[in-house]
Structures are given as C-alpha cells and as structure tokens.
Amino acid sequence: MAYATLDELTGRVDWELDEDELRIATTALADASDLAATYGREWPADRAPRLVKMLVLKSAVRYLRNPNGYTQSRAGDETLAWSDAHGRDAGSVYFTREEIRLLENLAGTRPGLTSVTLSAWGSRLRPHSSGRANAGGLVPVDYEGGRPFPLLDDDGGPW
C-alpha cells in the first residue's frame, strides 16, 4: 500500500529513470509509505490526506537523488563525505523531524501534555452544604478567582 504512485514520483524528478532506478523508486515509495503510517497512522490509500502523499513523494525523491546519503563529493582526489545529521537514516528513506511532526499532527498522535480527571474506584461526590443535588462536594480555593473543585468521598474517611 503506497500513498503515491510511481508516475507521481517520476513527475518530480528531473531525469529519466532507468530500469534499476524504477525498481529502487518503487521500494522507496513503499518504504516512505510504511514510515508515514508508522509516524502518523494507517490511512486508506485512496483517502490519505494530500500532505501525506506530498511527504511520501518528498522522502522518496530525496532518496533517489542521494541514495548513499553523501553530503560532499569531489571529482579531484575522489573525496566523499557522509553526515551524522540523520544518523542511521543517512542513505535510506527517511522523514525529517519537521515532516514527522506534520504526520503526527495529521494523525492526532502528537505527544503532549493533557489533564485527565481521575477518581478512585467506588468513590462518589460528597453532598454540597447548600443541599443542591447537582452541586457535588466542592472545596473552596484560596486564590482570587479560583473555582472550587470537587471532593470525592468514601464511607470510611472524614472528608
């Protein structure tokens, strides 16, 4: 399941792909699509967001242009250099950090902080001193503008 086609990929490169490059391009698209599903989620191929397709194509083209991950190449004295910037990903299909963030945002899986209401098993709200049924047990807060928060109770404690 690739999020982009070989025709879409060949339209993004500025040279004619030979037979070996076409084979490599096919596997690059599959690898980039698998990575997109890993960093994002598994979208149905026909309903994946356009940005996913664009990122897959961008990653595959980046790999086709530089399959060995070279950062420097000189003809005189045959100097070749690799960078540790992408670590083990150099010379393979990869997404940049920003591309990974985009995929996480698209999938709604971006890690972050959130608050979650927790309560102990079998606990219940204490009745409010006003006697209102929906008020629950609220504890006052000492700072200006602070809203009271609910206090849960069990049968054994004073609170």
Rank of each mutant, 00 (worst) to 15 (best):
T26G: 11
A28S: 10
P49G: 09
F95Q: 04
R12M: 10
L57C: 05
W15Y: 13
A45G: 06
R65D: 12
P67Q: 06
H86I: 04
Y3S: 02
V13T: 06
L64K: 02
V93I: 03
T10Q: 14
T38I: 13
L17H: 05
D46Y: 04
D20L: 14
V56S: 03
A37F: 07
T5L: 00
L51I: 11
E78W: 13
L80F: 14
A25S: 06
L51A: 12
G87E: 07
L9Q: 00
E42V: 12
R23A: 15
A2P: 02
L64I: 04
E19A: 15
S33N: 07
A85F: 10
A60D: 01
H86C: 05
D84W: 11
D46A: 13
T96E: 05
A90F: 04
V52H: 00
S59C: 08
N66F: 06
A81L: 14
K53Y: 01
V56Q: 03
P44Q: 08
E21S: 12
D77V: 09
M1V: 14
R88I: 13
P49R: 08
E16S: 11
R12T: 05
T38A: 15
R47Y: 10
L57P: 00
Y70R: 13
L22H: 05
G91V: 07
A37L: 07
L22E: 12
S92F: 08
M1R: 12
D46H: 09
P67M: 03
R65M: 11
L35G: 06
R50V: 12
K53A: 11
R47E: 13
R88E: 13
Q72S: 13
S73T: 14
T71W: 04
T96P: 00
W15H: 14
I24D: 11
A37R: 09
L80K: 10
W15L: 10
D18Q: 09
L35N: 05
V13I: 14
L9N: 00
N68M: 14
S73I: 15
R88S: 15
L17S: 03
T27H: 10
Y39S: 07
D31Y: 09
Y3N: 00
A36N: 07
H86Y: 13
R74T: 14
R62C: 05
P67W: 08
R50G: 12
M1Y: 10
D89L: 07
L57Y: 01
N66P: 02
L6Q: 07
N66E: 04
G91W: 02
L22G: 09
R65W: 08
E21G: 12
M54C: 03
Y63C: 03
P44H: 06
A75I: 15
A28Q: 03
T26V: 03
A37Y: 06
K53T: 15
R47M: 11
D14F: 10
D7N: 11
